[in-house]
Amino acid sequence: MGVTIKDVAKEAGVSSSTVSRVISDSPMISERTKRKVRQIMDDMGFHINENARNLVRQSTNTIGIVMKSSASESLHDPFFPEVLRGISSWCHKQDFSISLTTGESEEAIFQDVVKMVRGKKVDGIIVSYSKQDDKVVPYLMECGIPFVVIGKPLDGMSEITYIDNDNVKAAREASEYLIERGHDKIGYIGMSLEFEMAKYRLQGFKEAVLLNQVDISDEYIKNPASPDLIRNAVNELMDLDMPPTGIVIIDDLSALNALTILREKDIKVPDDVSVISFNNTVIANFSNPKLTSIDTQIFQLGYESARCLIEEIKDPSLFKKSIIIPTNIVERESALSLTNKDLGHIPNTDVEKNVEV
């Protein structure tokens, strides 16, 4: 039979209730007594029964993570694994576990969330996206369970803790990066505008075009409803009478697909068209050519979301907050200055240009 609380109490010369309070880190027990009891616990090989402890505290020490789409699709996008790495890093420090939704459809993902909440399987939830007409966030607000959103909520911002980038400014900076390098025919490839990130990045692109008096018609803007339609977007842009000399693309994965399609069309990047994308994932550094990309500090988005959520779990009275993670441009090979084109100039790889947010 293993060492029990009574065994530790007897060895330490204290009551069993004192040992229990030491385990729960009660402020009623002095630091001197805590140190003594913990040392005896270590010496005797006493291990806390986490299941029993959590039942008493009505806690699971687990947080749920709601993926943007099916597990297979989310894990193929390098954005989500990096967010997960950030979440896991803080959870490990706080002795929290994580539980992922596994549904393959929007409705199945929602039902996963319902099971997590009703089954009391988690203490709180991180929603890894912000999407129009999504059922998850309204459900969590109704249930009263602690939760955090990665992305700016479309409704009820004052009632929700969220972590995000300034996507409008980041997209404006990305677009101006090309404009400053002589590109006055710029295309934009986004995604479905039901996601807040897509809506705000498109807004930033339009602001840059307007502020810099660049004449761009709507035919230069493409928002494919799914990744499968990126090929159509690239073809439509490059088949214009005056095709763009530069393209802003919503993320590295979409940009990688675009590079493949451009190569098939015998269009060279950056000689014929420059490309800048977002997120600065591993894809950006290993694509051919390497992608100039906006570093959205994905790890930090996950890390801060976990930190805020666990703080709220431990103290539900905390005010809701918003945290904006700064971005910066990482210059590589995919974007060329037209003024230097005849010189064959390509920016040095992995040069960071800070963007104030």
Rank of each mutant, 00 (worst) to 15 (best):
N257R: 05
E356S: 08
E180G: 14
A174Y: 00
E50G: 05
M28K: 12
K320G: 08
K341H: 06
A108R: 15
I250M: 06
L193N: 09
M141P: 04
I40E: 04
E180S: 11
N340E: 15
N212P: 08
E311C: 07
K135R: 10
D350N: 15
E331R: 04
K93H: 15
L262R: 01
P347G: 10
E311V: 05
I230A: 04
N51V: 15
S226P: 08
I40K: 03
V351Y: 11
V351I: 11
V137C: 05
G144Q: 03
E352M: 14
N340A: 11
F299A: 09
L309T: 14
M41N: 05
P153C: 10
I109C: 02
S99K: 15
G151Y: 01
G182C: 03
D43S: 15
H76Y: 11
G190A: 02
S175V: 07
E173I: 13
F205L: 09
I216T: 14
E264T: 04
K185E: 13
P270I: 01
I216Q: 14
R172C: 14
V56T: 07
A12G: 07
S317W: 08
Q213P: 07
I40S: 04
M157T: 11
F195A: 03
A208Y: 03
A170W: 02
I179S: 09
L154A: 05
R181Q: 08
T339L: 11
D134R: 08
D95F: 06
I329R: 04
E194D: 14
H183Y: 06
G156H: 15
I250W: 02
I261C: 03
G190V: 02
E159H: 13
M157C: 12
S158W: 06
P289E: 09
F319H: 13
E264V: 02
L84P: 05
S217H: 08
E352A: 11
R172P: 01
I48D: 00
V330P: 07
A12M: 08
K68P: 06
K199E: 14
W90D: 14
K268P: 09
D133R: 03
E107N: 12
E356K: 04
I283G: 00
R32S: 11
F205A: 12
I63V: 06
V137M: 04
E106F: 12
I109P: 01
D266C: 15
E107V: 12
I247A: 03
S277V: 00
D342H: 07
T327A: 03
N235Y: 06
V149S: 11
W90S: 10
V114I: 14
T327Q: 02
D241Y: 08
R85T: 11
A208V: 07
N49R: 09
L259D: 10
E312Q: 15
E31Q: 04
T327G: 01
P146E: 07
D133G: 00
L100C: 08
E176P: 02
V127W: 04
T245R: 05
I189Y: 06
D218K: 01
E304T: 13
I125S: 01
I163G: 10
D25G: 00
V149L: 12
S287Q: 06
I109Q: 05
L338C: 06
E104I: 01
K34H: 00
N235T: 05
I323H: 10
D251S: 02
Y139W: 04
A255V: 02
I283E: 02
E107D: 11
V357D: 09
V149Q: 15
